[in-house]
Amino acid sequence: MPNKAIVGGVLTDATLAPIAGGKIVATLNGSDVFDDGVRVVTQKVEATTDAQGAWSLALIVNAEGDGAATTWTIEGFDRYVARVFEAKSLFIASTLPIALGNLEKTSAQNLKAAKEGNSARLLVVPDHALYQALPAAQRRSSDIVLVKAA
C-alpha cells in the first residue's frame, strides 16, 4: 500500500472570500521505477470545501520509487463548477502533511531531487520532531528541513 500525505488549503475567490461547497479535484499521472519494474500510475481524488472554504486530501506520496516522475495536478472549482485555480506538476516528497502553497513552492526542487538522486529535497515541517518521526526510508541525508512554525 503506498504511503499518503495530507495536503490541504482554503479555496477563496478573487476577493479572498472563502468558497463553501466548492470542489477540489487532484489527479495523479505518470510513471515510476520500482523493484518489480516500471509502473504507470494514475489516480483521481476529490474533496468538498467546508463553510470556511477549507479542504484536505490524502494523496499518494509520489517520491518512493527509484526514478519518480509522477506529479499531481490539483484543481479548485466553485459551487457552480467554474474553475477557480489549477496547480500543475506538484510533487509530494514525503508523508508529512503540507499546505498547497508550500507544496507548490517545493515541488519543482523535490521532483528534480527524485530524478537526480544527489540533489537535496526541501521539506517544510511545523517542528523537527515530525520529520525525525518519518520512517528511515522516507528520510535522506541530503534533505533540507525547513521548520515553519505557525
Results as ranks from 00 to 15, higher is better:
64 E>V: 06
137 A>M: 07
99 A>C: 05
72 W>I: 06
73 T>N: 03
11 L>A: 09
57 L>G: 06
96 L>N: 13
38 V>R: 08
93 A>W: 00
36 D>N: 15
77 F>E: 03
84 V>A: 07
27 T>F: 02
131 Y>K: 09
12 T>P: 05
65 G>H: 07
21 G>A: 10
68 A>P: 13
54 A>P: 01
96 L>E: 13
59 L>A: 00
25 V>P: 00
61 V>W: 00
103 L>M: 08
54 A>T: 06
17 A>Q: 15
140 R>K: 14
113 A>I: 04
50 D>P: 03
3 N>Y: 06
11 L>K: 02
83 R>D: 01
124 V>W: 01
41 V>S: 09
107 S>I: 02
150 A>L: 12
92 I>K: 02
145 V>H: 02
48 T>A: 13
45 V>F: 01
95 T>R: 15
138 Q>G: 10
108 A>S: 13
120 A>R: 12
73 T>E: 15
38 V>G: 00
97 P>Q: 10
31 S>H: 08
46 E>H: 05
16 L>D: 13
20 A>T: 00
123 L>A: 05
9 G>S: 08
6 I>H: 10
38 V>H: 03
130 L>I: 08
44 K>V: 15
25 V>T: 14
16 L>E: 13
33 V>N: 11
133 A>L: 08
86 E>K: 15
33 V>F: 09
76 G>Q: 03
15 T>N: 15
147 V>M: 06
89 S>D: 15
118 N>A: 13
19 I>D: 10
80 Y>M: 09
33 V>L: 15
150 A>V: 12
28 L>K: 06
117 G>D: 08
104 E>T: 08
64 E>W: 01
141 S>G: 15
98 I>D: 01
9 G>T: 06
132 Q>D: 15
91 F>N: 07
72 W>R: 02
148 K>W: 11
53 G>M: 08
150 A>Y: 10
82 A>P: 01
56 S>P: 00
67 G>T: 07
33 V>T: 13
38 V>E: 14
143 D>C: 04
8 G>Q: 11
24 I>V: 15
71 T>L: 02
77 F>L: 11
143 D>R: 08
104 E>R: 12
141 S>Q: 13
132 Q>W: 04
119 S>P: 00
34 F>E: 09
35 D>N: 14
22 G>H: 03
107 S>M: 01
142 S>H: 07
25 V>M: 12
5 A>T: 05
35 D>G: 13
1 M>W: 04
77 F>G: 03
20 A>W: 03
60 I>N: 08
145 V>A: 02
50 D>L: 05
109 Q>E: 09
40 V>Y: 10
18 P>L: 06
51 A>V: 14
128 H>C: 03
70 T>L: 02
111 L>S: 05
99 A>N: 12
86 E>A: 14
89 S>H: 12
101 G>P: 01
106 T>L: 03
92 I>S: 03
18 P>V: 01
55 W>Y: 15
76 G>M: 04
104 E>D: 11
73 T>R: 07
102 N>T: 11
98 I>W: 00
12 T>W: 04
114 A>M: 03
49 T>W: 07
133 A>C: 11
97 P>I: 07
76 G>E: 05
93 A>F: 03
30 G>F: 02
21 G>S: 10
17 A>R: 14
